[in-house]
């Protein structure tokens, strides 16, 4: 079965409910690797996750189709070619919301969840 469809940007996610499209080990790894970066090379993702070209391409295509990723073909020096990937604004927003939901879940289970949305991290 396909692991879900992306939640449309801006749509509410109930507390404790996770975006099923993002909540797969492969997509979590990909988005976590992309989050601190502007652009990341395909080879870095493949080696970091330890997956095959085809498996990674499949996940990237799904994320790109959902509008979460931008994929760029590079033409490197010396004739080498490569592919680079980055999170789009939509993807970053969705992933931030996904992580927030996870944090709320953990905080609630520990009894440390704020009663109202808290201030931004400083």
């Amino acid at each position: 079965m396909s692991p879900g469809s992306p939640v449309p940007p801006g749509s509410p996610v109930a507390p404790g409910q996770i975006d099923p499209f993002l909540h797969t080990p492969a997509r979590l790894s990909i988005l976590s690797l992309l989050a601190p970066a502007d652009w990341v090379r395909f080879s870095f993702l493949r080696e970091s996750i330890g997956t095959s070209d085809s498996a990674l391409s499949k996940q990237l295509s799904a994320l790109e189709d959902a509008g979460y990723l931008q994929v760029r073909k590079d033409r490197g020096a010396g004739g080498g070619r490569g592919t680079s990937v980055r999170l789009t604004v939509v993807g970053r927003t969705a992933f931030d919301r996904y992580l927030q939901t996870l944090e709320q879940l953990v905080a609630r289970s520990r009894g440390t969840a704020p009663a109202a949305p808290g201030p931004a991290d400083g």
Partner: peptide, 28 residues
Amino acid sequence: STSEHTPSISPDDAAAALAENRRREAQT
């Protein structure tokens, strides 16, 4: 879980996902 209809996950599962996120971000 990878189910399309997963409505929620356990706190342990959430904590594991957050730990994985931190580990991957540190790699990058």
